[in-house]
Structure formats: C-alpha cells, structure tokens
Design a protein around this nucleic acid. Structure first.
Length: 106
DNA sequence: GTCGTGACAGTAG
DNA sequence: ACTACTGCCACGA
C-alpha cells in the first residue's frame, strides 16, 4: 500500500527532517542520500519553500554550518536545544559538533 | 522539452 | 580561514 510520504520528493524530504530528534543534525546531502538521491540542492529548495513549519535548523551544510541567511536564528535554536557547538576564537562563524550530533534515520 | 534557479557538495588556489 | 569553479538534482516558468 502507499505511504503518505511516497507521493513526491517534497513530502519525503519533510518526512525525513521531522524524524531528526532534538539536539541532532543532518546534512542536506545526507537527507538526499536517505531518499536515495543526491539532490542536496533540491533538499535546500524544499526547505526554503516548505521548511517554515518544521525544525529546519536541524538540517545543516556539510561543513556543519546552518543556512547562510539564517545562522542567527539557527544559533538561538541550538542554544535552546543544547546542541553542541564548536566555536573558534577569532572567527565570526560557528559550527555544530557535527561528528557528535550527526544523525541518520533508521 | 529547454532554461534558469538554488537554505548544496567537493575540489582547487 | 576565504573565494571560485564545477557537478549534481528537482522544480517552476
């Protein structure tokens, strides 16, 4: 029978994002890989359009950085959820402790 | 069916 | 650390 999230790429991406537990993160590439695709960019597009209603901050780039235009907002969420961050003194940007919080859907 | 776009990834300088 | 270029895939016009 048909699962709800098998309809389109969009629904599947959203489904994956919602499975990411608090304090954990996944890269765009990993989300795409979880779908069996390499469309990391397409995942970003979906988030930009439909991510408004979901924990988009739990999806980060390969380097561990959140979306470039939303780093401020993401930081607030990380701080709230207790997501381990790695900061370098003298650098403006931070990154999540990717190795420690990396999550892959079961 | 073609073109342009993008909350990306990886490599090179 | 940074920017620049290329490759990749899905979507809208």
């Amino acid at each position: 029978m048909h699962s709800v999230q098998d309809d389109d790429f969009v629904s599947r991406v959203l489904g994956i994002v919602q499975t990411i537990p608090p304090g954990r993160v996944m890269t765009y590439g990993d989300v795409a890989a979880a779908l069996g695709s390499r469309a990391a960019r397409a995942v970003g597009q979906v988030m930009a359009r439909y991510g408004s209603d979901m924990p988009w901050w739990r999806v980060v780039r390969a380097g561990g950085h959140p979306p470039i235009k939303y780093e401020d907002r993401a930081l607030k969420h990380y701080n709230t959820e207790g997501t381990p961050l790695v900061t370098r003194t003298g650098t403006t940007a931070y990154r999540v402790d990717y190795a420690a919080v990396r999550w892959f859907p079961a």
